[in-house]
Design a protein around this nucleic acid. Structure first.
Lengths: 199, 199
DNA sequence: GTCTATATTTAGATAGAC
DNA sequence: GTCTATCTAAATATAGAC
């Protein structure tokens, strides 16, 4: 059977390309980054990039496919929790973990923008986002049962809104100023029951 | 003295170009939009666009210079208010007014991304944003004095965070689902004094 | 002032040697 | 599998007619 001579080397090269691409895309944007730059930063030739990936958009998508396992782990960690309210805060903090890294901020913006332009990317991101959204929605529902989350909230809508708030934290990234405390306050107060306002 | 033959016509043409450009940039992004498309949509030739604007980035910047007066009016409206808390909610709602328009959402993302790439754009946006931020910070400070806003909040930081939350509302734009109620709840609860959590 | 036509540049993608 | 060299397409910006 035909097979790659050295799968490990193959994977290493592939990851070198993805690492370089991720950094460059975050700093310069998708269109602002050339395949030649990626190849150069990864220490391979321009032609090799097209051996590993079909085209430039495929490189961008692959960068985000790496995020999927991370998100799954984050949700799985809190599956059997007794404290859904605290679990939500922890998941949100995990999602926003590197929100104070300006390059992560650039990547998020670039991602949001390209979703509308690359249908296949939409599928990749939707898959990763769905894991988080369903996990959060489940935690919100359990928080409502436990009486620690406002029963007027719709779990699915709330999960989506929480994702948006996390994105906002990335947008507000400034060197030397972590948005995490404000994020935590925002989410905790949003969820709590027993306020006078109505949605 | 040399002067434009018909200033009114000149302005009309300029605005036709800006209108077309705004729509196309929002839908297709900056790089995804060609000057030829803008010209065609505005009913002029490609060459004419370069008569009205120095280059393509200048067209993009001009689209946002239009936002400055709108923001100023929004802040000015609440200058002498007796109810700073309500005023903040109103300003935020005004900023997010067209957050449920998907094309506005695309434009915000595109804007955030291009700020890092076009220094002059950064200046334009910073000017518009500063008006809002200072206005909001003033209202937060007055709310603290009035006892309706949590005194533990820093007015300047809070104003910045509120701007980020508004951006989140744009990101969450989905047809048939306005993010405004969630935004209102988020902001109101974030500001209120007398919770157990600490920032 | 506005057009048409085009020069210039650049980058994605491929062909074929090794 | 990886390289070098190159082809091709596209889009910005300009030159010059009207």
């Amino acid at each position: 059977m035909a097979r790659t001579v050295d799968p490990a080397l193959h994977a290493r090269r592939r990851e070198a390309i993805l690492g370089a691409a991720g950094r460059l895309f975050a700093e310069q944007g998708f269109e602002g980054t050339t395949v030649a730059q990626i190849a150069s930063a990864a220490g391979v030739s321009s032609g090799s990039v097209f051996y590993y990936f079909d085209d430039k958009p495929a490189v961008f998508r692959a960068v985000f496919e790496q995020a999927l396992p991370h998100n799954e782990a984050l949700i799985a960690r809190h599956q059997g929790t007794e404290e859904p309210f605290a679990a939500i805060l922890d998941v949100v903090a995990g999602l926003a973990a590197d929100a104070d890294d300006p390059s992560a901020s650039g990547m998020v913006v670039e991602l949001l923008r390209r979703i509308g332009h690359d249908e296949q990317l939409g599928v990749v991101v939707e898959r990763a986002s769905q894991v988080v959204r369903e996990g959060l929605a489940g935690l919100v529902a359990r928080g409502i049962e436990a009486g620690t989350v406002d029963p007027e909230l719709d779990p699915a809508d709330t999960a989506t809104w929480l994702e948006n708030i996390v994105d906002a934290a990335y947008l507000g990234a400034r060197p030397g100023h972590s948005p995490l405390p404000a994020l935590r306050r925002t989410v905790a107060r949003y969820l709590e029951p027993g306020r006078t306002e109505r949605v």
